[in-house]
Design a protein around this nucleic acid. Structure first.
Lengths: 224, 224
DNA sequence: CAGTTACGCTACGACCCGTAGCGTAAGAGC
DNA sequence: GCTCTTACGCTACGGGTCGTAGCGTAACTG
């Protein structure tokens, strides 16, 4: 919860309600927690809103008053995890920073909640623009900000040149983001292999130095 | 259908049946076609097996006799598309080969059938090992073979060094595969931006030359 | 011909969905 | 205190999908 005080769930309209009974903030926490718990036990496919409501100790109707459906609820539930566990400590070099963010993102993806939920909501979002926008603002943009931060640091260190044209700069940032996030996701969910420090090192080396640098060897330091 | 004569659907046991009424091959084609059609119109979430059966003109029970569930059916339905539309024409250079395979894979992912289905079955496979194995053999391995072929060609051209240790060679191949497939998937499904030739060129350049090479400029021709 | 397997069809209980209706609880404004 | 407004819990409901069972029929084998 690093952003606005009540960013995630229910209130659709911009203005805060001034009158009437306020929504229970504790119910929010209970529902989102119950959603994560149900994701772990049942997975995306068998998770039902009735079950979540029962776990959270609230009525099923309360759930439907705050979220439009399963997808929206799950997005908010896992977004909280990304909020809490994503940061970019300065490790001193571009390669080390990449390795760090890769391992951090991988640790999130290894969780059973996110593992089963993330791809499911993305799949759903291919036919639902509002859902895609929700995923973007709640999850994707926060990941992307790490890429931007990492590039700025690398430029300050002199590891990367400054890019004058903001259009191409944004384009390369998007490219790098898709490569990093995509590779970690694919490794974890499709190949179903662990993203361990060794893999992270190989990947960061590939990203920094290119194919030839990786294929040549794993010991000689890359001279950019 | 480049592989075995009847690879995809129902027969669970290795031996072919010798007696009794044979399964209708036309029913297979009708069902898989109806599945793709339903994916386009309804998407993964609202696709029901009853609907597919009705479209295909078969009884619902016939569907359940051949496939264990929605996921397995959809995997086979989209796998046929991968079978038909994935190949690696020799374009003369490593970079061009990468661009080619990226554009080809992207064209598959742009289809509404695959777009909505692929991530959904991957999400499901996180809690179902048999399903993951089915996806691997029916889809993933065929993509990966393109990576292996591309590397071999690049080595013959002298663009990439030979790797003596088969273990590390396999490891780098897996790495490259996750990077390529992951980036294209992420770009298409998460960022929801098109994989056009321009993006493919930038991505291939990043992969071959590394980050510095891409950030430097986008106009000077890459000299491998 | 008999034997075996696939198919179409119907019917079924179980489950989940999303909503409506109602009485009650919790604050805001006077 | 009072009323107004909104949220909550609860029950109940029609509609839909699931996955299976049962049965008679179709197709192919030996």
């Amino acid at each position: 919860m690093t952003a606005a005080p009540s960013p995630a769930p229910g209130p659709r309209d911009g203005r805060t309600r001034r009158t009437g009974r306020p929504r229970s903030a504790e119910a929010d926490r209970a529902i989102l927690g119950a959603t994560r718990e149900a994701l772990v036990e049942l997975g995306w496919g068998k998770l039902t809103l009735g079950d979540v409501a029962a776990r959270a100790g609230v009525a099923k109707t309360t759930l439907y008053r705050r979220w439009a459906g399963k997808s929206e609820l799950v997005v908010d539930a896992v977004a909280a995890l990304f909020d809490e566990h994503l940061e970019l400590p300065d490790r001193g070099s571009l390669q080390a920073d990449i390795e760090g963010v890769v391992l951090q993102f991988a640790a999130l993806l290894e969780r059973p909640e996110t593992k089963t939920a993330l791809m499911a909501v993305v799949a759903e979002s291919t036919r639902d623009d509002a859902l895609r926008e929700r995923i973007r603002s709640a999850i994707v943009d926060r990941q992307k900000s790490l890429v931007l931060l990492g590039r700025t640091r690398a430029q300050l260190r002199g590891e990367l040149p400054h890019e004058d044209d903001p259009t191409t700069a944004a384009r390369t940032a998007d490219l790098i983001f898709d490569v990093i996030a995509g590779a970690v996701v694919h490794r974890t969910l499709v190949s179903a292999e662990p993203v361990d420090p060794e893999w992270a090192r190989g990947f960061a080396g590939l990203l920094v130095g290119g194919l030839a640098a990786v294929a040549t060897a794993g010991d000689q330091p890359p001279a950019a």
